[in-house]
Amino acid sequence: MLVSEMKPDEEILDMLDMAHSIYLVGCNGCAEVCKTGGAKAVAAYRKFLETQDKQVPGICNVDFLCNKVLTGTRLVREIEPIDRSEAILVFSCGVGVQVAGAVVDKPVFPAANTISMGGHFGLWPGAEKCAQCGNCVLGYTGGICPVTGCAKSLVNGQCGGTTRDGDCEVEKGRPCAWLQIYERLKTIDRLDLYRRILAPQDKSKLMPEVKQRKTLYWAIDQDVKPKE
């Protein structure tokens, strides 16, 4: 099971920036267990956003956001409120956020940091991959993960190595993630996000505390009952 934890409210508000109407997408899978997703957590966050002068035109909770086909068919019925929104805030692991970004042409923002996936990498991810880096930057990269997609895990933009065909310098046929990010941000008219200077990734987040990693599977592995 994946483990995610909510980003601090200030960081979420900073990411959402000028956007006033925010569509919310929650995940009823692992994220619900972590209380980062699920109907209850998402509804509570709607209340919070409304106190911050934001509007929420709609909410959609998908059973497993990492199932791309399911997510696509659910969101297609929400086109109208999504169209009225300037941004989509996603309550799930990094894979879920990438899936949401891949199926709608709107800026997507992660409400959570993925810190561990405990052997579970999503039900039906395609190109979507998450390295559980613990400092999710998908909000600045159009929902395409540079930590897993870029060979150098760069967070501040394309290096000088992209080939003429748009491939990464390390391997033919491996697309340069930063070129994809540039094209995506251009499509959704948010190149201002590319201009942001991001702080270096905090590598200490790659080693979450033991208590944060305690999941049901962990308990089975350890042959003990989960407390709680």
Binding site: A151, K152, V155, N156, G157, G161, C168, E169, P200, Q201
Partner: peptide, 27 residues
Amino acid sequence: LTGDHQALGDHPQASGVFDLDSVSLLK
């Protein structure tokens, strides 16, 4: 500079660090 990926050189087995990038190195 960010630097070329180690896969391009004569030690492809080495790890590439990239704690910082060209932008954060300037900072």
